[in-house]
Amino acid sequence: MKLYKKVRTTAAILALSVASGSTLASDQLLNSSYDIARELFASYNEHFAAHWKTTTGKDIEIRQSHGGSSRQAQAIIEGLRADVVTFNQVTDIDILHQRGNLVPVDWREQLPNASSPYYSTMAFLVRQGNPKGVSNWDDLARDDVSSVFPNPKTSGNGRYTYLAAYGYAQKAHDNDTVQVDDFVRTFLSRVAVFDTGGRGATTTFVERSIGDVLITFESEVNNIIAEYPDHGFEVVVPPVSFLAEFPVAVVQRHAERNGNLELAQAYLEELYSEDAQRLLAGFNYRVHNETVQTEFADRFPAVELLSVEQIAGSWENAMAEHFSNGGKLDQLQRR
């Protein structure tokens, strides 16, 4: 029975440590974010904590939750008491308003640049030396080029890629629906594998060596190159691509309840400060601050960015018209 006692004491110690970890400190904030933003926010939180200390003299602890952003939104609706959300999809914040009125309907007007402090675009990752000479979206419709990107049905990343190709085709074919559809149909038929998420697509491309081009966020392409330095991958940013916004919002109902409204607001506003924008650019996200833009000019090639409004009218339209069951995506994929 000696073992019993030991187990009991260990459990007690652990219980204490876990319980004390979750007791509320004076200033605490929970940020619910998308899954590949951990390092970004680890770094930003440090910046913000210092900023908060100098402006208010208070210490602050920022907790992070990371996951696929649709799932994160779902958790918040089910009761995860996040004060702020920093997502990679506008629709996932919209749903917070639609189900449970957790954010106000005009959340996009609460902060500058449609509440999107930074943005990115879809870029190509090609194998060493770019052997297939890929430079633009029309190359991806060539029959000797195969591409890899996540399934637009299950992944925001995939939806952006689909819309980017669609927007490119609209421009190239002067909005001629038949030609646009033809192009996108060919483009989709050249996809080697549709993985469910960005990470899966990366594994397919890098570790299983499938496909000539991996399409993903520009910000992520650089992370992949850094993670696999021996492969000699290269980035190609096409001249036309999609404006991928990274929207943020205060989860008003939760922040109010947690007594964090002011802090939450300040946390998001600080993202627009020059120092924070520089930090964001350091993680390969494009930012709006002009000084920082000039500093990082060589890292971000000029690209014409098409917004979802230009391509499909609005996110709501895009979802209904393109991604719903039997929508355009399904029609174009039918072989």
Binding site: S22, L30, R38, R63, Q64, S65, G67, Q72, A75
Partner: peptide, 9 residues
């Protein structure tokens, strides 16, 4: 499903 994925918590 029920974790909420809060790091360190």
């Amino acid at each position: 499903v029920v974790s909420g994925n809060i790091r360190g918590e």
